[in-house]
């Protein structure tokens, strides 16, 4: 049994509780034991690095130090923003020992940073540590007929030198997972465009504009729903969708599901375990496409091998 330190982040215990609960179900099916990081703190998200230099490193560093006290080699992070902050801090600390010492001085009780725990997003963990073949092997309810636009957002694959995962321009890891579940991933050019992130509250118009374009493009790709792996992307595309629809004078009816919700469904968990009531855009209608025949296969996608070869070159 694989063991993994689990960092949920504030959202997974708040607005994206269905991400947390389905993640736990999926990990159970995959035989992965998750140990939640004891007494973890907020990574500082966007706000810490917008306003300060040192606190932006100190907040994630405390979590990294706490993770080193456990026996697990890897810490899996649910939220894309937490992942980005934690991985950036790790890279910064590993490359600048002087800076690491300085920032470590703000963490008095927890101890010294050693740098021996790896940090991964859950998407990366599924793709690299579990693999699409194992995932496909756990499927008891194939999502055949379902067309899904996989939306990665900014932080899961960018910046390349920090994430060291998938392509920053046209990633395919989530698409490949979705296909392993039996569904069809649609060709979706806006998969790494920014949704507007925390401007959701401070400058909502920007989110309505950016997320609006993403929804338009996802709809155009022929998708029944959007798959995400980031709580903020989910809430911007789902909770703001009625406002966007009103502004643009058209209905999208595109539910936004976490990749873990789709995995849980394909692994045979009942629909109620996906917590459909948490969604502003109802998910049932889109999921009713499961079992339908897709007449014309949507192509024009990069084959998996080409993507791998490309990332090797980079």
């Amino acid at each position: 049994m694989t063991k993994l330190t689990y960092f949920p982040g504030c959202s997974a215990h708040g607005t994206s509780e269905e991400f947390d609960s389905t993640l736990k179900l999926v990990m159970k099916s995959l035989d992965v034991e998750m140990e939640e990081l004891p007494d973890w703190n907020c990574c500082g998200a966007t706000s810490a690095h917008v306003m300060t230099e040192n606190l932006a490193l100190a907040l994630p560093l405390r979590n990294l130090v706490l993770a080193e006290k456990l026996d697990n080699k890897t810490m899996g992070i649910a939220c894309a923003s937490c992942y980005s902050r934690m991985k950036s801090t790790k890279v910064e600390m590993d490359n600048h020992p002087e800076l690491a010492k300085k920032i470590n001085s703000t963490i008095v009780e927890e101890g010294e940073y050693k740098g021996d725990v790896d940090v991964k997003s859950m998407l990366q963990f599924f793709y690299e540590d579990i693999g699409t073949e194992t995932i496909a092997g756990k499927v008891t309810y194939p999502l055949k007929g379902l067309k899904i636009a996989c939306y990665y957002g900014c932080l899961l694959t960018r910046p390349k030198n920090i994430t060291q995962f998938d392509s920053p321009e046209y990633p395919m890891s989530m698409d490949n997972i979705v296909e392993a579940l039996g569904a069809t991933a649609t060709p979706f050019d806006f998969k790494t465009e920014c949704c507007g992130a925390s401007f959701s509250i401070s400058d909502t118009e920007i989110v309505l504009s950016l997320s609006g374009t993403i929804l338009e493009m996802a709809k155009e790709s022929g998708a029944h729903l959007i798959a995400v792996a980031c709580p903020l992307c989910q809430s911007n595309l789902d909770m703001r969708q009625p406002d966007i629809a009103k502004k643009r004078g058209k209905k999208f009816d595109l539910p936004v599901l976490y990749i873990t919700q789709l995995m849980a469904l394909a692994f045979g968990y009942p629909l109620k375990d996906l917590k459909p009531s948490k969604h502003i855009i109802p998910i049932e209608q889109a999921l009713s496409h499961i079992g339908e025949e897709i007449a014309t296969p949507e192509v024009k996608k990069k084959p998996k091998k080409a993507v791998e070869a490309e990332s090797e070159v980079e």
């Binding site: 504030c10 708040g14 907020c42 500082g44 966007t46 706000s47 810490a48 306003m51 907040l59 925390s198």
Partner: peptide, 15 residues
């Protein structure tokens, strides 16, 4: 917004 966010973290350790 960022000031309020950091204030939450300072107070509770989480948002």
């Amino acid at each position: 917004f960022h000031e309020i966010f950091l204030d939450m973290v300072r107070r509770y350790g989480r948002n």
